[in-house]
Amino acid sequence: MVFDASADNSLVGGTDRKDPQLLNAWLPSGPALLFCPADRPERYQKALDRADVVILDLEDAVSPDNRAAAREALVANPIDPDRTIVRINPAGTGDYRRDLAAVAETNYRVVMQAKSEDVASILDTALQTIALIETPLGATRANEIAATSNCIGLMWGAEDLVAGLGGSSSRFGPDEPRSGEYRDVASWVRSMVRIAAAAHGKFAIDSVHLDIDDVDGLIAEVRDAVALGYTATACIHPSQVEHIRAGYRPSDEAVEWARRVLEGAAEHNGGVFSLDGQMIDGPVLRQAEVVLSRVASGESTEDS
């Protein structure tokens, strides 16, 4: 594992930072990340064929009695490590140590640490780690966790968060105003995770939409995630993949605008200029770069 305190981080979700971090850190190859239970090896390749990245889950998707078998399956059924994340159990548990031992027997190099709560537990993985912020304590430490050198990205989760609050629902119910939307505390953590990731030049993954039949709700959340600079959205069912990809795919008009912005910036040597009556400066230029990066990401995924 190579660390470089002066590494120049490339544009990630609209940020340009220089923070201590990994050289050549892994990035998702596309915006749709599909969870797959690690104790169902017959689904590994199918999930990878349907999505941009598969998250092989050793935690919530696997019952405690099946975790030993899940780890054996993880080792015995390799898939493309460049498009695979392994979700491991929370630090401080026996399963956590056994998960890391299993990952060490594979070519996988990216883990997602469930219920991440402190810097030490991220460093302890000695792997490129996506910190899953889903507890009250983790939420209060999101900024410090994002700054950790081997933390390459953040994701957040609503259900464990609400359970940790002693609550009963992360979303407003059908008989309440704003039905189906996140309650304010969940929305706050979603915002904090995005801000912490951006502050340290790391990517951010939006949480799963558990109601598979609520396509309109999923589409709305993806649209909002894209507007806020999220890099990807996780999902639990293959039917959600195309809605996520479509939401992250820039329109033809947006791509044309972005290309004109970059051409104008080259003509003006990076200085401020006007395009169709809009002042184009550094922040707008970075937004254009993000649009084109999403096009490149989509083309790369289709070619794989």
Rank of each mutant, 00 (worst) to 15 (best):
S149Y: 10
P177G: 02
P177V: 07
D124G: 11
A163V: 14
A142I: 03
A199Y: 00
A131S: 11
A197F: 01
T135D: 14
A199F: 00
C151A: 15
G167M: 11
I133S: 02
Q128K: 13
R223L: 08
D213G: 15
K202M: 03
I133F: 02
D213R: 13
T135H: 15
G180I: 03
V185L: 08
G138C: 14
V222I: 12
I212P: 04
A220C: 06
F203A: 11
L161Y: 15
G173L: 11
G153K: 09
V193F: 01
E159G: 13
V226W: 07
D214A: 07
L165A: 11
G180N: 02
S168N: 14
Q128R: 08
D184L: 15
I219R: 12
L154Q: 03
L154K: 03
V222A: 09
A146H: 01
F172C: 03
L218W: 04
M192T: 09
W188E: 05
I145P: 00
D206F: 06
V185H: 05
R194P: 04
H200C: 00
D184R: 12
F203S: 07
D118Y: 07
D224Y: 12
A204D: 11
W156I: 05
H200N: 14
A120H: 08
I145Y: 00
T135Q: 10
T140R: 10
G138I: 08
A198F: 01
I195H: 00
F172A: 06
T148N: 01
R190N: 08
S187Q: 13
R141A: 15
V119M: 09
